[in-house]
Write a protein that binds this DNA or RNA. Structure first.
Lengths: 229, 229
DNA sequence: AGGCGCTGTCACTAAACCGTCACCATACTG
DNA sequence: CAGTATGGTGACGGTTTAGTGACAGCGCCT
């Protein structure tokens, strides 16, 4: 039983999908456009998003991009569902971060099978819970970071970067991995950009009394560790 | 860079797929039938399996079933690749445990994008295990070396060198072999350079109380051994 | 429109690291 | 035991890699 957000403007198709989902033991959440979808996502994360490419207002592919860019929604699988069956569209859709791409007209049973396949793969994903290491506390819900009670001010990217480090502490991450996990694998930015953000993050942490939390591993990348070396 | 097992009996398609994979930075492993595939899987698990439905002998769908039944191979993603485009086949394929289902004729670019999408889901895996010998501990994940709890500081090359020695302990390695395995077979450096790095590595280890761990075998090379001679 | 915060990139600096050499020590050879 | 081959060692210059400050572009808010 999974909650599935269905973003689809055509009522008849919306209905068809919802019925299919219900019949296969899922729980459909309907949204006729990207804005509604975003609002629903604000409240609660679904287990999967079924996304129409063509939508009134913001397009489905744009929505997909936004979902992939946001740390919070990054882990949610997306299945693109659209009339655009050409190769370029498929590649674009998948490159953007969709987990599967189904063309209309589609068979409800195939869709159900694909949903099942994607959900089966779904990993136990990153927690929404606050993380705390060495007196440093990060709360994804409130989007706040505190060092022994005192607030630490971070930009969005620094926040995501720190969140990633804290949920994957002690391990070394290459710049490529960080770009992949924090920026998203579809964007293209210089690897050195990571260095700069590391520096900004370090600056903010040091201002709060946390020295050497983020360490450089020459030739490999960076690591967050509470044990100083 | 992922190892991908391609199970496909038609040579021209096999070739097409392999070329596509190589071009997209993957490493194709070819198998013309299920039996060969099983043999290859015995030796080493690939990161993904591309599976043709119709094969001489045991069919692809049977192979998929076997892979899903075996604990060892259960986690490996499968993409079905076949001419059977009917709904029933798709559903069966996906129900069996395939992660995606692509019908022939397929576009190489779409295939590449789908492979990427499946691998993306799979990512956090295959972490290298720590090695420990005689109180000396090397962990590739954290990129740390400790001697009975105390940190050992090493440069990148020394780290790789020690890692190689620890994973190939008790065996003598010539300078040429070391250059090959630690430096990479394409670079050209003097053999004597190895000596210098051995010295640096020895220095770092001795500072942590590990004497004579790396032994010289005159005329042949070096060896890491916990039993002093 | 203007200000502001955030971001990605660049150029420059600082530091770590690497490969090589020259010279010394040691082991083997006859 | 002298001679030679092989490995050990300290130092050095060049190269690679990371740190840093500055800056222009962008979106957003007022």
């Amino acid at each position: 039983m999974a909650r599935i957000l269905v973003v689809e403007d055509e009522p008849s198709i919306q209905e068809l999908i919802s019925v299919t989902l219900t019949r296969t033991g899922h729980d459909p959440l309907r949204a006729p456009d990207a804005e509604t979808a975003l609002r629903l996502l604000q409240a609660e994360l679904p287990d999967l998003v079924l996304l129409d490419w063509m939508l009134p207002g913001q397009s489905g592919i744009d929505l997909a991009r936004r979902l992939r860019a946001d740390e919070r929604t990054r882990g949610v699988p997306i299945i693109m569902l659209t009339a655009r069956g050409d190769e370029q569209s498929k590649v674009t859709g998948l490159e953007t971060g969709a987990d599967d791409y189904v063309t209309k007209p589609f068979s409800p049973r195939e869709l159900a099978a694909r949903i099942k396949a994607v959900l089966r793969r779904q990993k136990p994903q990153a927690t929404e819970d606050p993380v705390e290491i060495d007196g440093l506390r990060l709360d994804p819900a409130t989007h706040r970071v505190t060092a022994r009670g005192q607030a630490v001010v971070l930009g969005p990217t620094e926040f995501r970067l720190l969140h990633f480090f804290m949920t994957h502490a002690e391990r070394v991450h290459s710049r490529a991995q960080l770009l992949d996990s924090v920026w998203g694998d579809h964007v293209f930015v210089e690897e050195r950009t990571v260095d700069v953000h590391i520096r900004r993050l370090r600056g903010a942490l040091e201002a709060s009394g946390h020295d050497a939390l983020i360490q450089t591993v020459r030739g490999s990348g960076y690591r967050l560790s509470c044990q100083k070396e």
